[in-house]
Amino acid sequence: MKYFAVLLPMKDADKSREFRPQHLAFLKDKRDSEQVTANGKFTDGSGGLVIYRAESFEACEALVKADPYVVEGARKYEIFEWDAVWAENAT
């Protein structure tokens, strides 16, 4: 399994507010299925970051394209394969 850091820069603040509940439900489902390791918004309001686990860039992009924020045009996305290094006591 590979890790991918996905930046979700703000595209439309109104749509972002409108579709936030659906986006958060989507992320919870992906965390529950271990496809998302971590997620959170940037405190300056510019967007957020999601760490996905997927077999390939294409598999990750398919997940990202299913995010309601992306589907509804609230956020753009940038995907970076991430060579994660974890602390010994981290998962």
Rank of each mutant, 00 (worst) to 15 (best):
L8W: 00
F26W: 12
L24G: 07
Y69I: 06
L27A: 12
D44Q: 05
Y52A: 08
A25M: 09
G47K: 00
K41N: 10
G48A: 02
E34V: 05
T43Q: 10
E34I: 04
D44M: 08
F4L: 08
K30Y: 06
C60V: 13
M10P: 07
V71A: 06
C60A: 15
A13I: 13
I79P: 04
S33E: 14
P9N: 06
Q22Y: 01
M1A: 15
A5W: 01
E58P: 12
S16V: 02
S46H: 07
N39G: 06
T43G: 13
C60F: 06
K30L: 15
E72Y: 08
E78R: 02
A25F: 03
V85N: 09
A84Y: 03
S46A: 14
K41A: 15
P68K: 06
D29F: 08
G45Q: 02
A59G: 14
V71P: 09
A87C: 07
K28A: 14
A59P: 06
K15Y: 05
E58V: 12
F4K: 00
Y77D: 02
W82Y: 15
P68C: 07
A87Q: 10
G45R: 02
E55L: 10
F4N: 03
A62K: 13
A87T: 11
V85Y: 06
T91W: 03
F57R: 11
S46C: 07
W82E: 06
A38G: 09
L49F: 04
A54E: 12
Y69G: 11
K76A: 13
S46G: 13
V70Y: 01
E34G: 06
D32T: 11
V50M: 02
N39F: 08
E72H: 14
I79K: 01
M10W: 00
H23C: 11
V50H: 00
E72L: 05
G40R: 01
R17H: 11
G47M: 00
I79H: 01
D67S: 04
Y69Q: 05
D12C: 10
A66I: 07
V70C: 09
K28G: 04
A5Q: 05
R17S: 10
